[in-house]
Amino acid sequence: MSQDQATAVTTDSALEKTQARYGLLALIISNLAIAAVAIFGVWQLDGDKSVIVGILTAAFTAVSSMTTAYMGIKAVSNTAKSIALGQQAAASVDADRLRAAGPAHVLRQPAVCRRGVPVLRRARVRCG
């Protein structure tokens, strides 16, 4: 890995941490705002049970939906990133292996006989 790639990975990691912090902060603040509005609504109703149940149900639904959506999107994002990094690392390892093997490890190109049958060029097969 070159120095530029290492710097890019470090910068990307710091950016992802910042986004995760502020995303979680936004989720917590919005959930607290929903809870505050629900508590204020229940306090103002002075005992109307059916409306209180409706307000609390709506507040619970909003909080759980927002939390589930945030966590689900975050989980999918993390999974996609780890898959992409894993594939990139595997490709890098394969490239390093091929480079280390040197010119003796050349992929053989198929040659085609007159009959259209592919054979390896280094194979001693007569096409005749």
Score class of each variant (00 low, 15 high):
residue 40 F to M: 05
residue 66 M to G: 13
residue 25 L to R: 11
residue 101 A to S: 07
residue 29 I to Y: 11
residue 116 G to V: 02
residue 110 P to G: 02
residue 123 A to P: 01
residue 24 L to N: 12
residue 77 S to F: 04
residue 78 N to R: 11
residue 52 I to F: 00
residue 42 V to D: 00
residue 37 V to D: 08
residue 126 R to G: 07
residue 87 Q to C: 13
residue 69 A to I: 15
residue 9 V to T: 05
residue 100 A to F: 04
residue 36 A to N: 04
residue 123 A to M: 00
residue 122 R to L: 02
residue 72 G to M: 07
residue 102 G to M: 02
residue 34 I to M: 03
residue 39 I to V: 14
residue 85 L to Y: 06
residue 105 H to K: 14
residue 6 A to E: 03
residue 36 A to D: 04
residue 55 I to F: 03
residue 30 S to R: 12
residue 92 S to K: 10
residue 26 A to W: 08
residue 125 V to P: 03
residue 115 R to Y: 09
residue 84 A to L: 12
residue 102 G to K: 01
residue 29 I to L: 10
residue 78 N to H: 09
residue 59 A to P: 01
residue 97 R to H: 09
residue 47 G to K: 00
residue 109 Q to H: 08
residue 53 V to R: 12
residue 9 V to A: 06
residue 66 M to E: 13
residue 3 Q to P: 07
residue 78 N to T: 15
residue 88 Q to F: 05
residue 45 L to F: 00
residue 110 P to I: 02
residue 79 T to P: 10
residue 64 S to V: 10
residue 101 A to L: 08
residue 25 L to Y: 13
residue 104 A to T: 15
residue 115 R to F: 14
residue 41 G to Y: 01
residue 68 T to A: 02
residue 49 K to Y: 03
residue 13 S to G: 13
residue 11 T to C: 05
residue 96 D to I: 12
residue 79 T to L: 09
residue 86 G to Y: 00
residue 21 R to F: 14
residue 13 S to R: 14
residue 34 I to R: 06
residue 36 A to E: 03
residue 30 S to A: 07
residue 62 A to Y: 04
residue 62 A to W: 06
residue 22 Y to P: 05
residue 39 I to M: 07
residue 23 G to M: 01
residue 91 A to V: 14
residue 37 V to W: 10
residue 13 S to T: 13
residue 97 R to D: 03
residue 28 I to A: 07
residue 16 E to V: 15
residue 89 A to P: 01
